[in-house]
Nucleic acid binder design. Structure first.
Lengths: 393, 393
DNA sequence: GTTAAAATGTTCCCGCAGGAAACATATACC
DNA sequence: GGTATATGTTTCCTGCGGGAACATTTTAAC
């Protein structure tokens, strides 16, 4: 886990971490929880690891690692395999891997389809169900689909143990995920989606914005793996969704509405946007316009320039280590890669602009499922011994 | 410390917290360090607190608090006073207060002056030295001034114990504070300011951007006290400095150049900025222009409108709980308060825009000294027993 | 004034967590 | 087959916080 070393610690840059520390005393068993979490998290992100590797990574004692791994195995979260052929001198170390029958469900209600997946704790999508819909689904549609698809998926996987369900919703979600405040393309407003899903499925549910889920997935297993300062822009039929990771923390904002980069003003004389302002990025560069310009080089150049301006503005605010483009913005970047990079460098305010990697997102159609599942796994990863799994028959 | 409760925890929104957990095992004595830190931090931010209050706030046992407070007292960091008259039933609880002879030095080199202050661990500025300069000071000037002023201040305070020195520099500072990459108004480029200060003063030194230091101060003892999602804009002779607190974490960016909101594009047909782009906020609204418009209502209205547009853009990205304005932007806000608030609401993309408090920063001339000192205290607050103090005679 | 009640400080002992060392085991190399 | 090396396992130790019992200091009641 060398990438983890780059994260700034609390002393350095996080005043609030220090203040929150004042509010919570620490008991002795917190240590155990923390270390169990550390190990499960390590094999979650790092794939199968030997006990020896875990010992080195954590700095803990061999004997301590032994006890911790045994506890995780007894909890049914990991298995230990005999070592493979390594060719190294010495007793081969046991390989610790997460059990793939521990899964999270991921739900993605969108304008034209409903999709549910079961994702193993190692990040692989084990099963999925998808239904196209002619009209945007209502919350009730989505709950009913989730219930049915969850049953089918559980049967297909032969009784997985489910950590919870994560839902990626294209719209504004309140900061705790309780309420879908406004999902314009779905037509949802002030919907207690989390509660309704939890009641129907009898699972722990987390609901979040789709762009945040997408970035989470890319950070966990995709193009932003282990990079903790990232700006993410996703172009879809429902506009441009944005998200950012700031020093390893997901930008959410006070009410949960942060990261709406699609509505950053990019041309003060631009067209009026549905949000009431002028020249928002998603009004200037959107799917219909790009489709229309598919074979118009000059128009594509202009859109690339606009995208570059947006990226330069975001770099100015966030100074990210990576800018990730997904959806049709990823497509535009593919056909105007050089131009975008060159213009971003020219427009960049800061030195070392070439250090910022602009890249297309990697996970494709699995992105939202993986991200939402990641979100659902978070509680288990943080407290492996204290988080119950639901055996789904 | 009720304000601390609003901070989102790692499960909720901070994927990287989880991953870094994997990289560091926890030993048993980490608990002790954490709890010592919690207590010292509590009295640092919360002022004098009784042991009983600490017991309630931390959830720790009375006996544990007793041991911890005794250790902090033996370290010379706090003193225990007999209780004041409370009128409450029961044995009066001892009052724990930080010792005011524990100080941090704060240095602020600016275009027209050099300033150094000694700030006690309770946040009060105990002593200061200031020198006006006719030309921007060189790094050598600043180091020489710091050395001399530190000696004078130490003499005045009769041998304080110094946690370190923090410097607030108006310019880009690399992420670890090692290098002042570019401070255009000072004319500093690629200066190893931290190392030079540390060698001259023989103290632990931290160097940071002035806007970050300002926001840190406001978060600790000013208008953003305990608010963990904040956008900060400071207008000064050297342009507009920006900073942001994102979920309690200071926005710094991958190289330390984050938060440069002064160079956010605000008018695509605006004037060319020194950074090469057009219509940057600090080109559109700056000190000379505001001075010239001091008695021109229409011009002031226009500048207020531009400021509102910038705030709306920032709200769109950050969804802050508070927007803090300092320097001449605070002045503009004072004379066009209603207009700015009304225009921000009208331009806001999100619902509940009225929840966002726009306010003028509070700490005035002490802000940078307090912020830089806070930064210097951070190591001591995080590890009270493991951080040495320098006795300054 | 005396006594009771309440809140807090202090002391002593316990359980739990990780560390360290000794020992056991499994591989490669000679 | 013996040795060096790396790792798993066992045992004992230290350190930390919790809890109970006791001591102390105040207010309230009579």
């Amino acid at each position: 886990m060398p990438e983890a070393m780059g994260i700034t610690d609390a002393t350095d840059e996080s005043p609030a971490e220090a203040r929150v520390a004042a509010a919570r005393g620490s008991r002795n068993d917190h240590t155990r929880r923390h270390n169990l979490s550390a190990l499960l998290t390590a094999v979650h992100y790092g794939g199968p690891l030997t006990r020896a590797q875990l010992t080195r990574d954590t700095g803990l004692n061999r004997s301590t690692i032994g006890g911790l791994v045994t506890e995780l195995a007894e909890l049914g979260l990991v298995v230990e395999d005999a070592a493979a052929e390594t060719g190294a001198v010495g007793r081969p170390s046991l390989i610790v891997r997460p059990r793939r029958d521990v899964v999270a469900l991921a739900l993605h209600p969108d304008v034209d389809a409903l999709e549910l997946g079961a994702v193993a704790i190692d990040g692989t999508v084990l099963a999925r169900r998808r239904t196209s819909v002619s009209a945007p689904p209502t919350p009730a549609d989505a709950v009913a689909f989730a219930w049915e698809a969850a049953r089918e998926v559980a049967a297909e996987l032969d009784g997985p143990r489910v950590a919870g369900l994560g839902a990626a919703v294209p719209g504004l979600v309140s900061v705790g995920g309780e309420v879908v405040v406004d999902a314009p393309h779905l037509g949802w407003r002030e919907v207690s989606f989390k509660e309704r899903l939890a009641e129907a499925l009898e699972l722990p549910v987390t609901v979040g914005n789709d762009a945040n889920m997408g970035l989470r997935a890319e950070w966990s297993f995709g193009a932003a793996r282990g990079i903790d300062t990232v700006v993410y822009l996703n172009g879809s039929a429902s506009g441009i969704g944005g998200a950012a990771l700031v020093g390893g923390r997901m930008l959410r904002g006070g009410r949960g509405y942060g990261g709406e980069f699609g509505h950053m003003m990019i041309r003060s004389d631009g067209e009026r946007c549905s949000c009431g302002r002028r020249g928002c990025l998603e009004t200037e560069v959107n799917a219909p316009r790009l489709d229309a310009a598919a074979h118009d080089d000059a128009a594509l150049d202009a859109y690339a320039e606009t995208l570059a301006l947006a990226i330069a503005n975001l770099e100015c605010a966030f100074d990210p280590d990576a800018v990730l483009l997904a959806g049709y913005l990823g497509g535009l970047f593919d056909v105007r890669r050089e131009l975008v990079q060159q213009r971003v460098r020219a427009l960049a305010f800061r030195p070392d602009a070439e250090d910022v990697a602009i890249a297309r997102a990697a996970l494709g159609g699995n992105r939202l499922l993986i991200g939402a599942a990641e979100r659902a796994f978070a509680a288990l990863l943080q407290d492996p011994a204290g988080t119950a799994l639901t055996v789904s028959a």
